[in-house]
């Protein structure tokens, strides 16, 4: 049923509102080691499950498949990998980290089992291809987040 019938719809209006709440997030012991390594050593760390051999980047404390404790089996991954998928961000929004258009890619680091999302830069959107090799470019200034890797750039063949 249309509740906004003509004779009463004159009373409808829209009030602007806002939700603003302070908030914090803890990376935890394992997540902190991952971020600190990016920041201080410019090295990307993962963990390997000794049971199912899965390599997780970012790292996990326990294997999500078999609940094996894996947070002591750190492995250093290379800074290079393969772009397994991508999208081009064309809309503007206040929360976005870059000026549009920019490329968001799924990067499968060499030795890792699952890709993770990051920004791909240094290439025009029309030239991006699935399967191309990319390399981490680290940020000059730390933010204590995954953006301590500034972006991934194409590897010069």
């Amino acid at each position: 049923m249309n509740t906004c019938r003509n004779e009463i719809s004159k009373d409808c209006f829209v009030v602007p509102g806002k939700m603003a709440l302070p908030n914090q997030y803890f990376a935890g012991r394992v997540g902190s080691k991952f971020i600190i390594s990016l920041r201080d050593s410019r090295k990307i760390l993962g963990v390997r499950c000794p049971k199912c051999k899965s390599v997780y980047v970012p790292p996990l404390e326990y294997c999500e498949k078999d609940m094996t404790k894996i947070d002591e089996n750190w492995v250093e991954l290379g800074n290079e990998g393969v772009l397994t998928n991508y999208t081009v961000v064309n809309y503007r929004d206040a929360h976005l980290p870059r000026k549009v258009p920019y490329i968001l890619g799924m990067v499968l680091l060499d030795g890792a089992e699952t890709p993770f999302v990051h920004i791909v830069s240094g290439i025009e959107p029309e030239n991006v291809e699935i399967g191309m090799r990319v390399k981490a470019v680290f940020a000059d200034k730390t933010t204590n987040t995954i953006l301590d890797i500034d972006h991934f750039a194409p590897v010069e063949e």
Binding site: G28, R29, V30, M67
Partner: peptide
Amino acid sequence: EDQNQPEMINEAVRAALADAGITL
């Protein structure tokens, strides 16, 4: 501060599985 959200949950999940004596 030493655990993120999934890690905190995981601690209780493992404890419950152990209490029941079963696996996932």
